[in-house]
Nucleic acid binder design. Structure first.
Lengths: 143, 143
DNA sequence: GTTTTTCCCTACTAATTATATAGAATATCT
DNA sequence: AGATATTCTATATAATTAGTAGGGAAAAAC
């Protein structure tokens, strides 16, 4: 059970965008090379985030990506759910009909609780908070 | 990001064992057929649980599996970690050396917190508790 | 000694994940 | 207008993981 690199890359990329919020668009190429991520993969990762309205893009030279909302208004649960599809660790949580044992099975309640725990943890972390901490780390590293 | 069926099967099987705790050994064949699980797969799933001392086995006819400890003393975190290896959703949580960006990357702290949230949720659920609820569900279903 | 079960090792298949390739569309700059 | 840089889209491929299946050895019960 691993969080996909897709989700991890998405978070890292959005933190970069949050750091540059209000400035000019950030090119995926820069993010990709700065973080050792395949550019082509990153393009695919960003796609659903654009569709869901978390980032905006500008084509052409001097183009790139910007956050579509203030970093305070984007939390990690939204980001990860957008690229991963769902944060349920077990199918039956979102699709009760996927298992005909739903009504006689205690474990579904466990998985439901687990999803909620993950939600509580992640929805509480905003890009703003992360960017701030990341900024500190970067400046520390320079010394 | 899905919990492996391995983990789900393990939990379901152990709940069955908890329901029969103190009685005679339960055959995997019965669990497998009762829950539509491949017997051969279930054997593999149970293997690490025996090694780690959560279940004991008896070979031969009238053999089978029993819990090695009272159901109160086995929690879901232990079970899942035993069959899944780890409940960290990201590698760098357990193996900082797996990523050379560890010290400049905020996201690791996020994944650490996430692991803890999952731990808090799952370690708090014992097989005894689950078995009790499962028992209720079964008797309800019969009516 | 026959049967039934766990035990162990291995191989196979299917599904998912991650990356790469190729080029179209669009904006910028000179 | 033309050259360049970027996002956008679709597809292909490689790598990894997940899930299943098979065959038989070992041990216990009857």
């Amino acid at each position: 059970m691993q969080l996909s690199t897709k989700a991890r890359y998405a978070v890292r990329a959005l933190v970069e965008l949050a750091l540059k919020y209000g400035q000019e668009p950030v090119k995926l190429k820069d993010i990709a090379s700065g973080q050792d991520i395949s550019l082509k993969y990153l393009e695919q990762v960003m796609f659903p985030l654009r569709i869901s309205g978390y980032v905006k893009t500008h084509k052409g030279s001097r183009g790139g990506y910007v956050l579509a909302k203030p970093p305070e208004d984007i939390n990690l649960y939204d980001v990860i759910r957008t690229v991963e599809g769902s944060l349920s660790l077990v199918d039956c949580v979102d699709n009760p009909e996927s298992c005909d044992r739903v009504n006689q099975c205690v474990t579904r309640r466990v998985w439901l609780g687990l999803k909620e725990a993950i939600y509580n943890e992640l929805s509480n972390i905003s890009l703003a908070e992360l960017a701030e901490k990341q900024h500190l780390l970067y400046t520390e590293a320079e010394q």
